Amino acid sequence: MISRTIFTDILIMAFLVSLQFFVLNRIVIFGKYTPVLYPVFVMFYPFFRNKFQFLALSFLIGLVMDTFMNTGGINAFATTLIAYFRTLIFRTSTDTSTDFFSFQSLQWSQFLLFLLSSIFLHQLLVQYIEFFKFSRIFEILLNVLVTTGISFIFIIIYALIFKIKQKV
């Protein structure tokens, strides 16, 4: 039997994938940059929940995005890796040394640094695997920086709409 928490997680994933695929993928900024919002599932997933379930759901949301976008596993890899290193990213970007993590206890600057670090790492993985040529490093970095900036704005709007910092 599926518990309510897993059902809620699947609904959130379905919402984010639908929003990404049907709305955000149709927004093209400067002729080639698309905002990315679906990784917020990984970033805002509660820290106290089952880690294996979290990794499986992170892989699943990436795999669903890969299926819709025909990207061959790039998003699944990136979201799973971000999920795996999320605690390290959180500790590094927020200077937190305790075992209890909470978004409510963070200052806005720490919260924003965590978001920016997570988005940047996700986009670096996606862009580098997509291009997969070291000779195009400057093009990759430009794509990563611009997409990170655009996605950061959309994720902040999402966090403000759903009051993530107060709830999680």
Score class of each variant (00 low, 15 high):
3 S>Q: 15
91 R>D: 05
70 N>P: 05
142 L>I: 09
165 K>Y: 07
103 F>W: 05
25 N>Q: 14
7 F>P: 08
17 V>H: 01
113 L>V: 01
145 L>S: 13
114 F>N: 00
139 E>I: 13
77 F>W: 01
67 T>N: 03
152 F>N: 08
117 S>A: 15
161 I>L: 15
98 T>R: 13
77 F>E: 00
42 V>T: 08
42 V>R: 10
137 I>A: 11
129 I>L: 10
168 V>C: 15
7 F>A: 15
78 A>Q: 02
74 I>T: 09
74 I>G: 07
28 V>L: 14
79 T>K: 02
141 L>H: 02
49 R>C: 07
142 L>M: 08
15 F>S: 12
134 F>G: 14
159 A>E: 02
154 F>A: 13
63 L>H: 08
12 I>P: 08
119 I>Y: 01
44 F>E: 06
164 I>M: 15
33 Y>L: 10
60 L>W: 02
51 K>E: 12
156 I>A: 12
66 D>R: 08
138 F>C: 03
114 F>Y: 11
23 V>R: 09
160 L>V: 15
133 K>N: 11
20 Q>F: 06
50 N>Y: 03
7 F>R: 12
112 L>Y: 01
6 I>E: 07
46 P>W: 00
12 I>Y: 11
159 A>L: 03
156 I>Q: 13
146 V>H: 08
118 S>K: 02
118 S>D: 03
59 F>I: 09
109 S>L: 12
48 F>I: 13
74 I>Y: 01
69 M>G: 12
16 L>Y: 06
163 K>R: 15
127 Q>M: 05
156 I>T: 12
156 I>M: 14
38 Y>N: 08
162 F>Q: 11
154 F>G: 14
1 M>Q: 14
2 I>M: 14
66 D>W: 03
29 I>F: 14
78 A>H: 02
16 L>V: 05
54 F>H: 05
155 I>Y: 04
120 F>W: 01
72 G>E: 03
14 A>D: 02
82 I>R: 01
31 G>Y: 05
139 E>K: 14
97 S>M: 13
116 L>Q: 03
156 I>N: 09
15 F>H: 05
107 Q>N: 07
124 L>E: 02
39 P>D: 08
57 L>E: 05
163 K>F: 06
60 L>K: 13
93 S>G: 09
144 V>H: 02
115 L>K: 01
117 S>C: 14
6 I>T: 07
142 L>Q: 04
2 I>V: 15
27 I>N: 11
72 G>F: 01
135 S>P: 03
105 S>V: 07
15 F>E: 06
80 T>H: 07
131 F>T: 09
100 F>K: 14
87 T>F: 09
15 F>D: 04
135 S>M: 04
123 Q>H: 13
67 T>S: 09
53 Q>I: 14
57 L>V: 00
99 D>H: 06
86 R>S: 03
81 L>H: 02
117 S>T: 00
17 V>C: 14
18 S>Y: 06
10 I>V: 15
18 S>Q: 08
36 V>P: 03
110 Q>R: 06
67 T>E: 04
